[in-house]
Design a protein around this nucleic acid. Structure first.
Lengths: 203, 203, 203, 203
DNA sequence: AATGAATGAGCGTTCATTCAT
DNA sequence: TATGAATGAACGCTCATTCAT
C-alpha cells in the first residue's frame, strides 16, 4: 500500500467512524452530511470524494459493520466442533461483540431498520447470513441426534430474534447493565427451545 | 357525542388511516404531510387542526396501533385460565393480528424503530407491556410448578423478540406466505424454551 | 376571477417580473433562485409553489415573452392587407417591441440561446412561428406577382436573422441608440432582397 | 521549439479539443472541468497548468475558433478582386467552414452567446471583425458604382445576421442537410438586398 | 509538469409549519 | 373547521479551484 493509499484509507476510515457516530446518535434521516464531515475533520467535498452519496456512505457502514460482526461470530464458532457448542459460541460472541460496540449494535438493530427500502436488502442479507449460520448448527445437531428433527430455519430465526431483542432492550433501557450478563439465561432458553422437552410436560 | 364531534372523529380517523398507509409505504421521514393530507381527502390545514405536528400524528398512530394490538392479545389471553395456555393464546393472537394487518406490523416493527428518539419511549412502553403480559404468564406457571424457576423477565423478552423477528422476516421476505403458518413450530420452541429439558440432554 | 386568484396572479406576475430582471442581468445559469425570490418580495418556497423548478420558471417566462411578441406582431400585421406592407409592419413592430422592452430582447436573443438543450425546443418554436409569419407574407407576395418566385422559407429565416442581429448589436453595443432608427435601412435591404434586382446588375 | 514545448503544445491542443467537445455538448455552465480533463486524457491539475481558469479556457477556445474562421474567410476573399465577388466568397466560405465544423458553429453561435458577460466582449470583437470585412466590400462596391450608396455598416450586420440565423437553423433543426445547399438562395437574397431594386418595383 | 485528493461556498429543492381567509 | 398559499431553515450535492506530492 502506497503512502497515498494509506492516507486515503485513513481519511475514509475517519469518515466511516464519524458517520457511525452521527448516524447512531441522530438516526439516518436526521443525520446531516455536514455534521459527519465536521465530525471527521474533513470537508463535505472530501466526503463526497470518498462516497458518492449519503446512502452509499450508510450502506458502506452497514456493510463493514455486518462483515465485522459476521467475521467475529464465524471465528468464534470455528473454535468449536460440537454443533451445539458452536451455537453457544455464536450466542456468546454476538453478546460480546454488541456489548463491546454499542454504536454498532444501534446501527444494525435500530438505525438501519427504519432507514428506508434501500437498506432493507442489506439488512436482509445480514439476517440471512446469521440465520444460515445458526441453521447449519441446528442441522448438524439434528444429524448427530443431539436434538430432535424440527424446522431449523424457523428455529434459527427465532434464536436470532430473541438475541436481537435482548440487545435492543439493553440499548433502549440499559438493562442488563452488562449485555453479557444476559448470556446464561438466554443460553438456557435457546438450548431448551431446540432441545425439546418431553411432550407430556408440555401438554 | 354531537354530530359535529362525530364528523370530527370521522375526519380524524380518515387522517389516521391515511397516515398509516403513507408512513408504512415511505417510512416516517420520507412521508410527507402533504401526501397524508391528500390521501385522507383533507387539506394540510385540516390535518394540523386535528394533530399539532407530524410527530404527534405518528405518535397517535403508534398509540392506537399498540392499544389495538394489546387489547386483542389481552382479550385472547383472558379466555384461558391455564398460564401456559394463556401464553399460547398470546402467541396465536399476535401472529393472527399481525398476519391480518400487515401495515400495522410494518408500523410497529419497522417504521417506528428508526423514526427517532422521540418514539423510542412509546415503543418501549409497548415492549414493556408485552413483556409484562408474558412475564405474568410465566410467573404464574412457575408458581403452579408447570415450569422451573427462571428469569421470567428475560424469557418474556426472548419470547417477544423471537416472535417479532419471525414477523419481520414475513414482512421483508414474504415467508411464510401466511404468517399463521409459523405458529406450530414457534409454539414448540417457545414452550420448550421455558419448560426446560433435563440437564442431561443439554450437557 | 376571485380575490384569491387575483392575489395569486399578482404574486405569480411579480415572480415572472423578478425572474425576467434577474435572468437577463445574470444569465440563466448564474441567476439564483434566491435572488429571484428576494427580488419579487417573496420567499423561495413561495416561488416553488407557483413554479415547480427553475427550468419551469424560465420556460414560463420564455413562453409569455414569445407569446406577447408574436401577438404584437400579428396584430400589427393584421392591420395591413398588402403582403409586403404586412412584412413591413412586422419589421416595424419587432423593432418597436424589442426597442421598448430591452429585457425581453435580452431574454429571447441572448439568455435563452445558451441556457441549455431544454430550451432549444421553445426557442425553435418561436423561430418557426416567426418564420411562418414572414414566409406567409412572401408566399402571398409571390402569388400576387409582387416578387419573383423564390425559396420563401429560407428568405424568411434570413429576414428574421438579419433583424435579430441588428437587435443583438443594439443590445451589446448600444447602437443605434434608438433601435427603431435602424428601420429605414433595414426595410430597404429586406425588401430589395426579396424583390430582386435585374439579373444584369448582379452578374 | 524544444521537445518539451512541443509536448506542451500537444497537451494544450488536446485540452482545447476536449474543451470544444464538452462545451458544445453541455453548454458553458454545465460543462465540468472534470469532464474536459478526462476527455483530454489529462488531469484537472494539468488543465489548470495550461489555463488559469475555466473562463480563460473558454476564452482561448473562442479566440482560436474566431481566428480560424476569420482567417479562412479572409483567405477566401483575398482570392477575389471584385468587391461583390469578395462578398460572395465570404458567404461561401462561412457556410463551408461552419458546415464542415459543426462544433465550431455551435460554440460561436450558441454556447458563447448565453455564457455570460465575460464573453460578450470577445463575441463582439468577432461580430465587429466580420462586419468590418463585409462593410469594406460594400464600401468598395459603392465606390466602384456597383451598388447604390447605403448604410453599409448596417447592411453588413444584416448580412451577417442572416447568415448566422441560417446556420443556427441548420444546427437546431438539421435543415438543410448540407449547410452549403443554402448558398444559392442566400446569395441571391443578400446581393439583391444590397444591390437594390428600382423604387417603382418596391412601392 | 502533472496528479488527484481536498476544499468550501453556493445551489436548487423540500417540507413541516403557520395563518389570513 | 377547513383551506392552501406562503414561509424559511435546512439539506444533499456540485464543482471551480488549490496544493502537497
Amino acid at each position: 500500500m502506497t503512502a497515498v493509499q494509506e492516507r486515503s484509507k485513513t481519511r475514509r476510515q475517519r469518515l466511516l467512524d464519524a458517520a457511525l457516530e452521527v448516524f447512531t446518535s441522530h438516526g439516518y434521516s436526521d443525520a446531516a452530511i455536514d455534521q459527519i464531515a465536521r465530525a471527521s475533520d474533513t470537508s463535505k467535498g472530501g466526503l463526497y470524494f470518498h462516497f458518492p452519496s449519503k446512502q452509499a456512505l450508510f450502506l458502506a457502514l452497514l456493510g463493514e459493520a455486518s462483515a465485522a460482526l459476521l467475521t467475529d461470530v464465524e471465528t468464534a464458532m470455528a473454535a468449536e466442533t460440537d454443533p451445539l457448542a458452536r451455537g453457544d459460541a455464536a450466542l456468546r460472541e454476538v453478546l460480546h461483540a454488541f456489548g463491546g460496540h454499542r454504536l454498532l449494535a444501534r446501527l444494525l438493530l435500530i438505525d438501519a431498520v427504519g432507514a428506508g427500502k434501500e437498506f432493507a436488502v442489506k439488512l436482509d442479507e445480514l439476517h440471512a447470513a446469521f440465520a444460515a449460520l445458526i441453521a447449519r448448527c441446528l442441522d448438524d445437531a439434528v444429524a448427530q441426534g443431539l436434538i430432535p428433527p424440527q424446522d431449523t430455519r424457523l428455529a434459527a430465526q427465532a434464536w436470532y430474534g430473541a438475541v436481537n431483542h435482548v440487545v435492543l432492550r439493553w440499548l433502549m433501557t440499559g438493562e442488563p447493565r452488562r449485555l453479557e450478563d444476559a448470556y446464561p439465561a438466554l443460553r438456557r432458553l435457546l438450548l431448551f427451545g431446540v432441545t425439546g422437552a418431553s411432550q407430556e410436560k408440555v401438554r
